[in-house]
Design a protein around this nucleic acid. Structure first.
Lengths: 131, 131, 131, 131
DNA sequence: GTGGTCTAGACCACA
DNA sequence: GTGGTCTAGACCACA
């Protein structure tokens, strides 16, 4: 898989990496058990500090998206929900609130936002079929 | 107008203030030319650091929502959009893509995500009616 | 509260810090809403790098033990279970397996281990009364 | 004797090997003076790096569980405890305290913890009978 | 080779 | 003042 970062910093670098891996897992570009680039390899490729990559991988591991194979890098983990329903909603709402804020700042209305999300979902998840 | 902040961390305080003023302008609660509380007055009222209020007003001024009246505080500006439609959509989509990955990772489906966004919008923007 | 670290490294420094704060919360030495030392202050006190303290606080925040107050440091969070029953058991078992390993290495039998845990519980939680 | 490893990450591979040999010695499955598989043979059998096996044997040798027979592999040593009772308890308590904090943080009570430890012991040490 | 920990220190956002 | 991000780089554990 190909990861790209942009220094035009809307998002921090480690977040850009984590997001892209999340997306690749979600879209099936990466499958369970598949190895991802090692911390050092990716850092070299992107010309960033290994610590930054490690931070992204660490977050993904804590969220159950990746799994460290001691001494042999990271693989895509067999996903399962580790958070309670309440906690999952809390996390979703937190992200949604940021989104709404950002949308308002950009001058979009609630309806425009909903419609645009719909379109992105169709594009990102053409074969809608998650739990 | 009445501004409220909550220390519950989801959003930074300056963003809470800026968003509330944006909404008030957008819903017509504040009209063009109307004066808003001074930096010091609002900071005192909310028991927060004046820098925080100044940061919010500064962002709103840069975005053309407010207009500083040297020596006499801020008034609601005659608003105009700064970004082109394309640029605004590009920025929104960036945030939306991040949201979708995160939501799916948390185990939500596209439909659940849309529904939840709807609910948050009702809560955050009860009197919907944007430009 | 007083945090102490020892370079005799059975545990990494950030882990020693996290453990001690966990314990202080559990025993009631720290109560909900109480502020803990700032990252920089504690780092200075312990003569270690701020990043190391930040790592400990970060873990505790992710586990819902602490809560960051943007710009104003960390406080003890209102605890709630964020993990599913399955995940909580998985995490407990992981720690238990390490413990058993360590106990075996030290030459203790299973019965001795159980008995000793009993004693430690009495000492650490004299007023047993958790959910 | 039959050694099994699992790549599921809880314990490092070398530790899994060392623990299994300790258990076998302790339960009498391996008796004093008995030879164990050579580093290369076991590594080949488990399809792992010989360094990993060597690391396990090294630790066991330092702890007096095994004895290297120059040129002829390792045998089970006539075991003696290296640490004093006090030192062993001190080390155990350190791990136990860490366990208790973590368990309570995860929402388990002392009783649940004891019960769960019991279960893990049954699973990990089915034929209980230590020195 | 792999990742994990830690330091020293810069720079930024926010209160 | 607070924490967050990132770099450069050392050293260690493990495979």
């Amino acid at each position: 898989m190909q990861i790209r970062i942009s220094v035009g910093n809307p998002q921090s670098i480690y977040r850009q990496i984590a997001d892209q891996i999340r997306r690749a897992v979600v879209t099936g570009e990466l499958s369970v058990g598949e190895a991802i680039p090692s911390v050092r390899q990716l850092a070299k490729e992107l010309v960033i500090n290994p610590n930054t990559v490690a931070k992204a991988y660490g977050e993904l591991t804590r969220d159950g998206v990746l799994e460290g194979q001691p001494g042999r890098g990271y693989i895509v983990a067999n996903r399962k929900n580790i958070y309670t329903k309440t906690e999952r909603l809390r996390r979703l709402d937190q992200v949604l609130d940021s989104l709404v804020s950002e949308a308002i700042t950009l001058g979009f209305s609630g309806d425009e936002l909903l419609e645009r999300l719909s379109k992105r979902l169709e594009k990102l998840l053409p074969d809608q079929s998650l739990p």
